[in-house]
Design a protein around this nucleic acid. Sequence first.
DNA 1: CCGTATATGACAATATGTTGTCATTATGGA
DNA 2: TCCATAATGACAACATATTGTCATATACGG
Lengths: 147, 147
Amino acid sequence: MEGDAFSVFAITALRLAGHLTAAGDQLAKPAGQTSARWQVLAAARRGGMSVAQIARALGLARQGVQRLADVLQREGLIAYADNPQHQRAKLVRLTEEGAARLGVIEMAQAGWADGLGAAFTSAELDAARAVMARVMEMLEAGETAGG
Amino acid sequence: MEGDAFSVFAITALRLAGHLTAAGDQLAKPAGQTSARWQVLAAARRGGMSVAQIARALGLARQGVQRLADVLQREGLIAYADNPQHQRAKLVRLTEEGAARLGVIEMAQAGWADGLGAAFTSAELDAARAVMARVMEMLEAGETAGG
DNA sequence: CCGTATATGACAATATGTTGTCATTATGGA
DNA sequence: TCCATAATGACAACATATTGTCATATACGG
C-alpha cells in the first residue's frame, strides 16, 4: 500500500540528505565554509532579506540562522545593513570577501552537479523533485495547522 | 542542463529532510523519543548488530550513534549483550520497555504514512525513491573513493 | 494614543552529528 | 609468535539545529 511506499520514501530521503550534506561540506571546505554557511551566503547575495526572512526561506529555525549569520559577520563575509522598514531587523548583505568565498564554492558545485546530473535525465530529476516538493507542501501544511 | 536540474533536486532534498525530521520528532514525541533515537531503536529491534554496524546502516558517524546508544542504554530502552565474535563490540538489543516505546511510535507512524502516501501513487513514490537511491549510491562511491 | 497581536533579535539549554585522537581488540601475513 | 593493519569504543572539541524564554519593535484595530 502507499503508506509503506511512503515510509520507504521518507527513510531514503533522510539518508540521502545525510550524504548530500556531507558532499556539500566537501564542496565548501576549500573556501573554509560548510553546507550551512554556504546556504546563508547564497541568501545574503540575493540581498534585501533579514535573518528571520532567510530562516523562513531555508526552512530552518530563526535562531540557528542568527547564530550562523553572527559568525559570518564577525568573519567579514556578510554585513548587516540598516533596514528602513524595521529598526531591529537588519538586512543581510554579502561583502566582497563573502562573494569571493561563495564564488569558489559555486565553481566546485557546478562541476559536481554536472557530473552527478549526467547520470540522469532532466525529466527523471524533475519528476523526483516534484514528488519531494509535494510532500514538503503537505508537511508544511501540517506544521502550520498542528503548531 | 542536467547539472542545474541536479542542483535544484539536491536543494529540494535537503529542505525535505528538514521537514521529515521535524515530522518524525513529532511522531516520536508521545513516546518521549526523537527521530534519531527512533532510528536506533528500530536498528536495535533487528538485533545482532553492534553500534558500529548500526552506524554504517544508518549512514551516520560511529561516534554519534554510540552517544545515542549510551543514552538509550542508561534509560533502559536498549541493552548491550556480549558478542561472541568480538570482546569489545557488544551487540545492541531492544529491551521490553524499548519495544513498548517503539510500538507507540510505529503506530503513529503508520497512520501518518498512510495519510501522506494516499496523495501519491506507489509508482510515483517508488520512482522518486529510485532516483534518490541512485544518487545516494553515486555519493557513497565518491565518499569511498575520495576519503 | 492605547492595547493587542505579531515579528525580531538575544540568550540559554538541549539534541544531533562530525572530526580527531587514543587505547584496546581483532585479523591476517611473515 | 611477532608485526602491521583495521575495527571498535571512549573521550573531547566543535558545528549544526531546535525549543523555550525574554525584551523590544512593528502592525493594526479601536
